[in-house]
Design a protein around this nucleic acid. Sequence first.
DNA 1: TGTCATAGTATCAAAAAGGAAACCATAAGG
DNA 2: CCTTATGGTTTCCTTTTTGATACTATGACA
Lengths: 113, 113
Amino acid sequence: MSNDCKVETALDILVGKWKPVILYHILSNGILRFSELQRLIPDITKKMLTSQLRELEYHDIINRKIYAQIPPKVEYSMTEYGKGLMPLLESMHNWGLAHIEHLNEIYGEEEAK
Amino acid sequence: MSNDCKVETALDILVGKWKPVILYHILSNGILRFSELQRLIPDITKKMLTSQLRELEYHDIINRKIYAQIPPKVEYSMTEYGKGLMPLLESMHNWGLAHIEHLNEIYGEEEAK
DNA sequence: TGTCATAGTATCAAAAAGGAAACCATAAGG
DNA sequence: CCTTATGGTTTCCTTTTTGATACTATGACA
């Protein structure tokens, strides 16, 4: 019954407090180095950034390209497969946008928790 | 920049480990009492069920109808607004389904983490 | 009087997630 | 030598989530 429900599978890939914003930046910029991501997302720790990137990589959403040089250089980009997530992300974004408005209508402008 | 990204807003409504399955059951059954939800989702605790339902109610996704009788009777159902989530949930479900297959292709059938 | 049912709360504990800070390897440049 | 830069890893700690369990109110019924 409820085991047919794969919404959670999709959620797993997106959840993690930082994944949406990481994907957002990679999608907007195409290719980003680890340090560039750090700069774009100042509040994320290296540990979090690493772990989230690894999970996305495991799921074949992003590519990790290592240059054998020192200091190290590692570039992250969407995989072709990962780009297939875009429509879903857009739908979620749009729904989220509309929902914020809806909450405002219900509860007023002050803090829509 | 990344503050335009409302993917997380959508995620907030769906995340919670139990919300997808709660929505699934309410969507499939139309109207469900608290105790029926408990029976359908045996592993959930009352506390979790209550808190998740309250959050969904706050976001105007579900209705909570209280009958003034004893023993108490409370029915949960989708709001009209909440039904607007269905396409998104379906997209997520479909993506999740396809993704499981994709992981199998990459890593083989044994445990797609 | 005692028991059952429903829809919760309340309290405390455990587990999971997230964060801070230190540490590492290595080459280039001064 | 010493410092700087990159892309991490490791350890420890705090916060957040989740869970287990007990408790509550109230009327019906035996």
